[in-house]
Amino acid sequence: MANTLHETKEVLVGRAERQMREHFGDSELTTRQKLALTCRILFDGGHDSGLAGQITARGTEPGTYYTQRLGLGFDEITEDNLLLVDEDLTVQEGAGMPNPANRFHSWIYRARPDVNCVIHTHALHTAALAMLEVPLVVSQMDTTPLYDDCAFLKDWPGVPVGNEEGEIISAALGDKRAVLLAHHGQLVTGGTVEEACNLAILIERAARLQLLAMSAGTIQPLPPEQAREAHDWTSTDRRNQANFAYYARRALRNHPDCVREGTAL
């Protein structure tokens, strides 16, 4: 006999959130391991563009963050070959040099204490949408974590290796979690590596959906109240952890070398 068929949506949502807190706990993966897995996840998800793009996460010491070594593709990143750099991009741990374009990450971390991971890539569909100089339009349920949470930088500042680009990009991002960079690509942020990884997957899917929809007709907007509800429902820590765990298991099947043997997911 069913006991919940007459309960309100508010009650059902509350119960589901409690159950997620009970069933999905914090990961035991290190930041290095999460970052290496994220590189492989995004490589498989169409974010590969040669050596372009950077994936970073704050280190334990203030003003430091982990990033990949210039010269390695996303599919070559492991927990052991990541670099730890400071805000001047001076290597603190590891061998090799970081991508000089990492400089604008330093600006974002300074401007946003809530951000612990930054992902910038030139994924195919986000890059194609960026060529049109139009903002990202979120009009489908799966991509609502980005609803009213993706800024737009219309004017391309050029190669992002100077402090000017750091100021421009961090200002364009503002208090949102993502920004579409015209003639460039996408950037997402997260309070955790898991959150940023999930948003990176979603922004590329959203761009692909938008291009497909634009080719077929006029995109219709989501009702704002329902869209905000969906944004909040799909943006919790537990959902981010569950989504990331799935992506990580899939990536590890394809790339068992990215973390040390015996790592538990």
Rank of each mutant, 00 (worst) to 15 (best):
T4W: 10
H6I: 06
E7G: 08
V11L: 15
L12T: 02
M20A: 12
S27I: 10
E28H: 08
L29K: 06
L29P: 08
T30Q: 07
K34P: 11
A36Y: 04
A36W: 07
D44P: 04
G46H: 07
G46I: 03
H47Y: 06
G50W: 05
Q54W: 13
I55S: 09
A57L: 11
A57P: 04
R58Y: 02
G59F: 12
T60R: 14
T60M: 11
T60E: 15
E61M: 08
P62M: 12
G63T: 01
Y66R: 10
L70V: 08
D75S: 02
I77G: 00
E79A: 15
D80S: 13
L83F: 02
V85F: 05
E87F: 10
E87S: 07
E87G: 05
V91T: 15
V91G: 01
Q92S: 06
E93M: 12
A95W: 01
A95Y: 13
M97W: 13
P98G: 06
S106Y: 09
I108F: 07
R112M: 07
P113K: 04
I119W: 11
T121Y: 13
H125A: 03
H125T: 12
A128T: 15
L129V: 03
M131R: 06
L132S: 11
E133D: 12
E133Q: 12
V138L: 09
Q140T: 12
Q140I: 01
M141C: 14
M141E: 15
M141D: 14
M141W: 14
P145M: 07
F152P: 07
D155Q: 08
G158D: 05
G158F: 00
P160Y: 09
N163P: 13
E165S: 06
E167D: 10
S170K: 05
L173S: 01
L181Y: 06
L187G: 07
G190Q: 04
V193T: 14
V193C: 07
E194R: 01
A196I: 05
I203H: 04
E204K: 00
A207N: 00
R208M: 14
R208S: 01
Q210Y: 03
M214S: 13
A216F: 00
A216C: 10
T218K: 03
P221T: 01
P223T: 08
A230F: 01
A230K: 02
H231I: 11
H231G: 04
D237W: 11
N240D: 13
Q241F: 00
Q241E: 11
N243T: 12
F244A: 09
F244I: 10
Y246S: 13
A248F: 14
R249V: 05
R250L: 15
R250K: 15
R250C: 09
A251P: 09
R253K: 15
V259W: 11
R260A: 14
E261V: 01
